[in-house]
Design a protein around this nucleic acid. Structure first.
Lengths: 194, 194
DNA sequence: GTCTATACGCGGATAGAC
DNA sequence: GTCTATCCGCGTATAGAC
């Protein structure tokens, strides 16, 4: 399959009908569990109790569903960025850290797919809007300077958060413990005071 | 597909014939690029220039190939652990850190699949031998205590290293810069002296 | 160890009725 | 919006010759 040009990811969120929303929601969960490649339209259809044809009536291809899921997830990151920006320049970094931690915990299962799935990643990596959002995120975390060290710190921090929530070692920790530890330890990457 | 019980992953490394080694090597590369679900036996066969049937002669199912790949990768982690242990208790943590960094850089492209692929992850997470190796790894990194914080620190550090090497922000850094930054920031995270 | 040939089901995708 | 029915290709897997 060709998997859509990432350009579509960044488009304005089209009017989402309830039927489409159900599909995107179900698809997101299945992608998280089986990966994009391991999720069939039949599985998505079954999950919401309709036939494949009904799914196809909403989205012309699996590709479009992938894009819709990616777009929805990206929107959540933007929400965090906006909220952090609104909290003022002083607390922006800390707010960004806690916001990203919350987001990662919320979608715990999903996280690995979002950051690791080859299909999703390829779609994302060529998408301009996605890059802009990520750029905002990294700048918010490490500041304006684009030294190798600053970039690596941001890379490691986001990878650490995303990877830790679904890590086997963290499986038996409840969300609250997980959150507090992630925020606390995450500060070490940013060299923020405890 | 049923995907093998993880138990098989931990079995002693069977005598690996050259034919099997070629398959495992090709499969590992393809898994990294397309994910496990996105990789067909036809792709593996094509990659090494034989037919599907020839592949099936070596491994009775795709499942077995997945297990073999996982086992091979786990063995590399064990090698790092053994080397670190041999370096003496004083330098063990630092040696472990640099060893894991080297390993991650070596398989840069591969890393996301290893840590993120749902199929691989599920096979791993129920595998006893895998857990033992990971236990050794995180004990080596954060010490004997099994507090939530220690476990989270180990999870975050391994995720950070694995995730950072394939991170968009690190894409334009050469291996040497990447290595030194990872070790430096990793040490800071572990609160080891510079 | 590798091949050709083949079975069988599932995946994505479409047509047309309700 | 959803259905039934159908198409086609590819995926896994097996049999048997060389």
């Amino acid at each position: 399959m060709a998997y859509a040009s990432g350009a579509a990811i960044g488009q304005a969120v089209a009017s989402i009908t309830p039927a489409k929303a159900r599909i995107v929601s179900a698809a997101a969960g299945l992608f998280a569990e089986h990966g994009v490649g391991g999720t069939s339209l039949q599985m998505i259809a079954d999950a919401i109790g309709v036939t494949k044809a009904a799914v196809y009536h909403q989205y012309k291809s699996k590709d479009e569903i992938v894009v819709a899921v990616a777009r929805a997830e990206l929107a959540r990151v933007e929400t965090v960025l906006d909220a952090a920006a609104a909290s003022g320049p002083e607390q922006a970094r800390a707010a960004l850290l806690t916001g990203m931690v919350d987001l990662a915990i919320e979608r715990r299962r999903m996280e690995s797919t979002l950051t690791g799935d080859p299909v999703l990643n390829r779609a994302f990596s060529v998408d301009e809007h996605f890059r802009q959002v990520m750029d905002r995120l990294y700048r918010g975390l490490v500041g304006q300077d684009s030294t190798a060290e600053a970039r690596m710190a941001a890379a490691m921090l986001t990878a650490a958060i995303g990877g830790a929530v679904m890590h086997p070692l963290a499986q038996d920790l409840n969300d609250d413990v997980l959150r507090s530890q992630l925020v606390r330890l995450g500060r070490r990457f940013l060299e923020l005071p405890d």
